[in-house]
Design a protein around this nucleic acid. Structure first.
Lengths: 180, 180
DNA sequence: CATACGTTTTAACCTCGGTTAATGCGTGTT
DNA sequence: AACACGCATTAACCGAGGTTAAAACGTATG
């Protein structure tokens, strides 16, 4: 038994179109979602209406609200399709039950969580140690394909600046590129 | 068999004094450390000499470089004692071996990783969505005991501002508190 | 006591990014 | 073709925080 067998056996296939939500901020959703294809954004919405993007998700990513699945809290963020998306929905508690019975599934879950933790540590590092301009340049270097698929509004809200701010950053970066 | 049995049986007790390092940025260290007592800071040092503090660690926290333990990379941050500290050092790979043999240990590791992931997501949220002033106010509210133990220099580098900046933020916050 | 060292505050100046608003640029849609 | 709508850029103004340096505090240590 493996994690992917679990996905096959226990997962529910879901298809969503552009603009549709998987869940909304404030919902209780105790599922995890494995993305087969498409593109989504996980985003926070403040009381004042300011949107901030937590992450973009695509093929092979796994997403869900841990606080909701693990603690039963309402989701602190929403999950929205930017492209038509096929996902496999699984129950977090069912996965935990399997993990208690099956040591190899448990260890695959550990691997998933280790990958996830390292990803979050990397983002923490970027916010803590780098400027918005450095975060932008790094993103251009590391995931140029992603940048082509999303609007600059969304890219800005992912980097933690406004669209106006990102436009200025781009101008600075590309002008200094011309000199070198 | 439980995770704490593992700590007892396989762990090595370590004592360190103020100013001593557990490991330095750039080292390869494939251990995890359980903190019995004391206080540490995990911190990044940039090429230009700028320090940024990733986290403060104390009683019952677990720390280690995942990238180093899991992938064998050099540690991207260092770990330094701010108070005399007693730790239990365990081998990451030994823990992984135990997890492969013992389903209950594996599931405790899952719990540890879930807690860790939620902590990192919370910090991501704070950098992405909140101002330095809001992060400071939240820290005062949530962990007032920590603030008494560390210098304002370290607090600033944890919040992602300079000590000068934090001094201004404090002044603003306390002056607006007087009014209410 | 005197000195030295680290911490915190304050001040002056500057830079980056936020805000608002106007303009221009696609790309549908009717 | 005309219009509307969302996206991107630009400009003007503002504010938060960075930088540098000085001053005000401790609190060790000789």
């Amino acid at each position: 038994m493996s994690f992917y067998d679990f996905l096959q056996n226990e997962g529910i296939q879901i298809e969503k179109d552009i603009g549709e939500h998987i869940f909304r901020q404030g919902d209780v959703d105790t599922s995890l979602y494995f993305i087969n294809s498409g593109l989504l954004k996980a985003y926070y919405l403040s009381d004042e209406g300011k949107e901030s993007i937590k992450s973009f998700l695509s093929h092979k990513d796994i997403i869900g609200s841990l606080a909701s699945a693990y603690l039963g809290e309402p989701c602190s963020f929403g999950l929205l399709c930017l492209q038509p998306t096929r996902l496999t929905k699984i129950s977090f508690s069912a996965l935990r039950e399997y993990s208690h019975k099956d040591v190899s599934v448990a260890n695959e879950v550990i691997d998933v969580l280790l990958q996830f933790s390292m990803k979050k540590e990397k983002r923490e590092f970027e916010f803590l140690c780098l400027s918005a301009e450095q975060r932008f340049s790094l993103l251009v270097k590391n995931t140029p394909h992603l940048i082509e698929k999303i609007t600059q509004n969304d890219l800005a809200r992912y980097l933690g600046v406004t669209p106006v701010g990102l436009s200025r950053i781009k101008k600075r970066v590309y002008e200094s590129d011309l000199l070198s």
